[in-house]
Design a protein around this nucleic acid. Structure first.
Lengths: 220, 220
DNA sequence: CCTACCGATCGGTAGG
DNA sequence: CCTACCGATCGGTAGG
């Protein structure tokens, strides 16, 4: 498509030095424009919240005009849901990989809990970690049906935790009721998204140490 | 003021059987209309979030017209901030009372932690508990200056916790670094506002038991 | 505290 | 993916 396409109003003078910078053909039409939208949306949703973020904000963040996000997503809500789904899928995958990586070392139960916690912090607080916080803190803005689907994914994510917590309870290292303990533990971890600052304070390893000591009184 | 005040447009027929029910003089002008607004705002802010709640929603919840909340609060943001301030002030007061109430029994350190945790759950999950959740989950929507003021109040709230956690650390009952432990503990507690349902599941006492066992391995 | 109103913003769409 | 646009909603205000 040549530079001078149809312009309903205003055209005549100018060789187009005004306006946003044109993208090359290679940049647009690229299938990962969608991924860029997701990333920018996640970042904005996290920083400002879903309702306070306009689709225009998101468009501008990736160099699009106001109407263009709707070419990739049929609504603002669909964008939010896509962010959350992507976050959960990625979290489940990374958790599986972390567990497989540790398999050779055959850690004891406490060691397994450590793997899970350390990985959880990574997903939650590591670089590019906006998707899961958005999922955790913006779930008010999705439909009940969407929420149900995400709850299922969360259940999948929690699967590996159950046998570990059960075993720690059986061995007396975890005294509390397992179901409540799981909720309280996830709370302690998830809340860190509110206060943790990667640039100062404890490292994720130190955080994991503290969590292990707090929950089972030791750090393997 | 008589019933027939000036009506710029439309007046003539009718003896006013239409429209909302009129309030008696005793009901309006009452100083606690402000308090009603605060309560309704807290409930709506919690259920739908600050941005998704319109000042019209709040007005309707107390039987006012759309412009009237601005007679009591100069902006929507001022209403939010008032909710948060009220929540913190009340929380600090109730915590002091809980500690004084327990003073005669001279509980040991673990017993003191139990008092603090039990009271925290009460503030967070008990009847009429919308103010603190709003404070915890809507702080993105207030100004930096307001946030600083609230952080100060939160510091005041945390004052009694520090010596307790320090003592538990010194006695070996709390193994984790005290500062990180405090953050993780508050996370575990605060997150309960996301999942706890007063009508089913554990009671606040059982929740407190679980938290105590999880954090220091026993429940005094 | 109500009435009547305003400017701004927003999600979304038609048509190319 | 852009242009141009629309209807709806919203926070807030003047004047009583």
């Amino acid at each position: 498509m040549p530079v001078s396409s149809v312009r309903p109003i205003d055209d005549g003078a100018a060789k187009r030095p005004r306006g946003r910078p044109r993208k090359t053909v290679a940049e647009r039409d690229d299938g990962n424009r969608r991924a860029e939208l997701l990333r920018s949306a996640a970042r904005l949703f996290r920083r400002k919240g879903f309702d306070a973020t306009s689709t225009r904000d998101i468009a501008a963040a990736v160099g699009m005009r106001s109407g263009s996000p709707f070419y990739h997503f049929k609504s603002k809500g669909a964008l939010l849901y896509a962010v959350m789904q992507e976050g959960m899928r990625s979290a489940i995958l990374r958790q599986q990989q972390a567990l497989q990586r540790a398999e050779r070392a055959t850690p004891d139960v406490a060691g397994q809990l450590r793997i899970l916690i350390r990985n959880h912090f990574d997903i939650l607080l590591g670089p590019g970690s906006d998707f899961i916080p958005v999922m955790l803190y913006e779930s008010r803005s999705i439909t009940p049906r969407q929420r149900a689907a995400l709850t299922e994914l969360q259940g999948e994510y929690e699967v590996p935790w159950t046998p570990v917590l059960d075993a720690l309870h059986a061995s007396g290292q975890l005294k509390a009721d397992v179901k409540l303990a799981r909720l309280l533990i996830f709370g302690a971890l998830n809340w860190s998204a509110q206060w943790y600052d990667r640039r100062k304070g404890a490292s994720l390893d130190e955080l994991t140490d503290a969590a292990m000591k707090l929950f089972i009184g030791e750090k393997p």
